[in-house]
């Protein structure tokens, strides 16, 4: 790897900022500009036009007039459906993240304890499913969970059940889909953390009389805190805004903010309110991101001192 970067450097004699500016340029182009457009639309009013909203900035007698309307945000507060959707999205994200952690931690732990030669193979198995399209994998779950699908037919043939269990279009199916799709995002950061642990610490704990579960709780778990936080953030944040999985596996009563956003945009064709929903979602998501950042910074400080 170092040989590679050395090679690169020869071809890229430019100062460091050229490299650093790439991610910033990326963020500017694909995050900041769309964000500003959505922010602008959230202050407009819906209209029958193309595009379907009023101008925020227009010219009167050669002077620019900026008209910001806050009514879309007030509208969100006035109807309980938005708050309920945010809360239920957060709830689903929290539960799904805990499930991912419960499944992903032992997986990552086991992989990190494998002999170095087979670790990469095990990691490959974790990543391999994402080589097929996300959409197709979720469709596959419809085939597995539907009333005359794989699971029900299997159980019926074994004689364990008399009538198909309703699994598709239930919250259960949504959790299965989310945990399945986001598990690698939990396993990978945990693995990178766990694989770096010094085994001698556990040996020392054992020498000092700690039982395996005690040394796990007192040594491994605290040391892997950063990995746990990173994994939880990587899972929880995208799950809050998830649209595809609840749409395909959930029932019509699965309320999530991603679906509300879709309804505002495609059914109500009210772009300003849809943008306001998106802005509010961003604000809600920034809170955990800031907490994560703080925790990471503290971690770094701790390491430095």
């Amino acid at each position: 790897m170092s040989a590679l970067t050395g090679g690169w450097r020869r071809f890229l004699p430019a100062p460091r900022w050229a490299l650093i500016s790439v991610p910033y340029f990326w963020l500017l182009l694909f995050f900041l500009i769309p964000f500003l457009i959505a922010l602008k639309i959230s202050f407009a009013k819906a209209a029958i036009a193309m595009p379907p909203f009023t101008d925020v900035l227009y010219w009167v007698d050669g002077f620019p007039v900026l008209k910001l309307r806050g009514e879309n945000y007030l509208f969100l507060l006035g109807d309980s459906i938005y708050l309920n959707a945010y809360l239920s999205s957060l709830w689903i994200a929290v539960v799904a993240t805990l499930l991912c952690l419960a499944i992903g931690y032992p997986m990552a732990y086991a992989i990190s304890r494998l002999p170095a030669s087979s670790r990469n193979f095990a990691l490959l198995l974790v990543i391999l499913p994402s080589w097929t399209s996300f959409l197709i994998r979720i469709y596959a779950w419809i085939g597995i969970l539907k009333p005359n699908g794989l699971v029900n037919n299997f159980l019926l043939n074994l004689g364990l059940i008399d009538a198909p269990i309703k699994m598709l279009h239930t919250p259960f199916a949504v959790y299965i889909g989310i945990v399945y799709a986001y598990l690698p995002f939990m396993v990978l950061p945990l693995y990178t953390n766990l694989v770096k642990h010094d085994h001698r610490l556990l040996e020392a704990a054992a020498d000092l009389g700690a039982k395996p579960w005690q040394s796990f709780l007192k040594v491994t778990l605290p040391l892997s805190k950063a990995g746990i936080i990173a994994g939880c953030m990587l899972v929880a944040i995208p799950v809050v805004g998830e649209f595809v999985i609840p749409e395909m596996l959930g029932g019509p009563d699965t309320l999530m903010i991603g679906r509300v956003l879709w309804q505002e945009f495609f059914n109500n064709r009210d772009w300003p309110v849809a943008s306001a929903v998106a802005m509010a979602m961003l604000a809600i998501l920034i809170v955990p991101i800031v907490i994560f950042h703080r925790a990471q910074a503290r971690e770094m400080e701790g390491k430095l001192t």
Binding site: A46, I48, D79, I81, P252, D253, L255, Q263
Partner: peptide, 19 residues
């Protein structure tokens, strides 16, 4: 009209999600 559209769609969400 658009303002009725919003009432329709809100009603529809109420019906679909039962809330």
């Amino acid at each position: 009209p658009p303002e009725v559209d919003r009432i329709f769609n809100r009603a529809w969400t109420t019906i679909k999600t039962s809330q």
